[in-house]
Amino acid sequence: MRSNHWQIIGAALLALALILPMVPLAIWSLAHGWRFPDLLPRAWSLKAWDYALSAPSGVLQSLWITIWIALATTALAALVGVPAGRALGLHDFRGKRLVLLLMIAPALIPAIAIAPGLHGVFLRLGLTGGTGGVILAHLIPTLPYMVLIMAAVFARFDTVHEDQARSLGAAPWQVWRHVTLPAIAPGLLTACLFAFLVSWSQYLLTLAVGSGRVQTLPLLLYSFAAAGRNDVTGAIALIYILPGVLVVALTARQVTGRHPALMAGP
């Protein structure tokens, strides 16, 4: 009984620590001025939210751009990463370790190491300053997660199901649609979630390739924070974390610790 007591205290402290940094952001977004040493604002107001949701702040526009980039990056990563994951998960071949190493490399070699070079390459290709270039750049940190998660998913997939379906009269696309896709769907959903989040959180690559013209939410958040607009920063921060919270709340069961490939970017 006593150990249970300590568990609950430990868990409560952990929960508190996890929530704590979000608290001042939420308070700031509703504060009508909040000076030191007031523990809470003397007056409350929705003006930060009004401003954040109005056209001049550019927040909503940023939100759509960020969502669009993350969705497009996820779709491309799935298109490219699912076949690669299949090859790595189902087959052994010469040079497989090398391929795996290359796939993991972007997760361990920081973006700052490739940002200057990538900027130069994209400049030549005319890909800087637009969302297209940013989406391509976001593929670099997203693909490793897509490929590695799908490799783990396919490693547990038995292709006899595909052969059986084929023999029962399914054409190749029908096999994919009715057998393979349903079998890998939970893993694919997890992989897509992580790909989306990695793109969604990306800062430096957007800055490097977007040349300041692609204002995603993190860039906008930083410019308001740097300008000392704590109230608007708080509102943007909450808008920014909302989709992730929603997705986890809706898919909590699929993304439990049970999945071996639980590997979103740190």
Binding site: D158, Q164, R166, S167, L168, A170, Q174, P182
Partner: peptide, 20 residues
Amino acid sequence: LPPERRGVVMVFQNAPLFPH
């Protein structure tokens, strides 16, 4: 002919039913 047009059906060993 591709497998689906042969009119030949193979029942695999451990022929598992599709689990989904």
